[in-house]
């Protein structure tokens, strides 16, 4: 490559890739620098670790990290666990399979906030679910289901919204396995469990990792589901960050923001690694 060619490539990359790197780079840089007391918007900038020390000491911070991890990991696991069998079922087309696929993927079209509204509308104190449970006589009176303390509502919403996405990715991967390869495994004596463990799982592991990681990153940084349907006595990391920012405590918000990025990165790496470790065909040989 000549320098002229390089110049051409760099010029071409500048408006797209260049902007991405500039914006995301600046945002991450500001977050990190602000978390160490610099880049003060209102007062004097001072390099110090006191914001880290201060925020890390608070109980709310530890609880938020644990809570976000809880939501992130469980949402990713539930979505993938639900999507896997469905993807296998829909591998071969059959009468009605297109309709089934379309219905399953419908939540992709529904905005998360709309989903949240629909959900709380159904589980409301005088909502249909409560009415129904009383009508069949299982519950004596209406129960308070919204903002439950175990965040089951948030988990249901996350799974509802993310399962179709996992299904989309996994269907593609599962359909990529040729019939002959599965037939060969059968022919060599592999039953359905062995076929899944030794052929399907190892061949779809990268798709599964991608689904796990993307859903995890989205769910670990959840804000709106948590605010609308989550437990009122807990805060997610994003919520905590917005809370600090609204109070003008930019440095504290930055500490939470950087932590959130670290949690997202480390968490996805761990999830991807665990998936490979558990599902890799080679370990079972």
């Amino acid at each position: 490559m000549t320098w002229r060619r390089w110049l051409q490539v760099i010029l071409l990359l500048t408006p797209g890739l260049g902007l991405i790197v500039a914006l995301i780079g600046t945002v991450v840089y500001i977050a990190i620098v602000q978390s160490f007391g610099l880049y003060n918007l209102t007062g004097e900038s001072l390099l110090s670790a006191e914001h880290w020390a201060g925020v890390l000491e608070r109980r709310a911070y530890g609880r938020a990290v644990r809570y976000s991890l809880y939501i992130g990991i469980l949402s990713a696991l539930f979505s993938v666990a639900l999507a896997y069998p469905l993807a296998l079922w829909l591998r071969k087309p059959f009468t009605g399979s297109v309709a089934v696929g379309a219905i399953l993927k419908a939540p992709l079209l529904v905005h998360g906030l709309v989903a949240a509204f629909l959900f709380i509308n159904v589980i409301a104190y005088h909502g249909v679910l409560n009415q129904f449970m009383q009508w069949i006589g299982l519950w004596e009176g209406p129960r308070r289901l919204q903002n439950d303390s175990n965040a089951i509502g948030v988990l249901i919403l996350q799974t509802w919204k993310n399962m179709p996405f996992a299904l989309l990715i996994l269907t593609g991967a599962v359909q990529g396995i040729s019939d002959d390869v599965l037939d060969a495994a059968r022919d060599l004596g592999a039953g359905s469990m062995a076929r899944f463990r030794k052929v399907i799982a190892p061949l779809t592991i990268s798709a599964m990792q991608a689904a796990l990681v993307i859903i995890f990153i989205g769910a670990v940084a959840d804000f709106s589901f948590q605010v609308i349907a989550g437990p009122t006595n807990r805060q997610s990391m994003a919520q905590l960050m917005v809370f600090y920012k609204d109070g003008g405590r930019w440095h504290d918000a930055a500490v939470v923001g950087v932590s959130l990025m670290v949690v997202a990165l480390v968490g996805s790496a761990l999830l991807a690694f665990a998936a490979r470790f558990i599902l890799s065909g080679r370990r079972f040989r």
Binding site: I24, M241, M261
Partner: peptide
């Protein structure tokens, strides 16, 4: 990959 709220807050900053 970067959580949207992190981008949003520090973009505002």
């Amino acid at each position: 990959v970067v959580p949207p709220f992190v981008t949003a807050i520090f973009f505002t900053s």
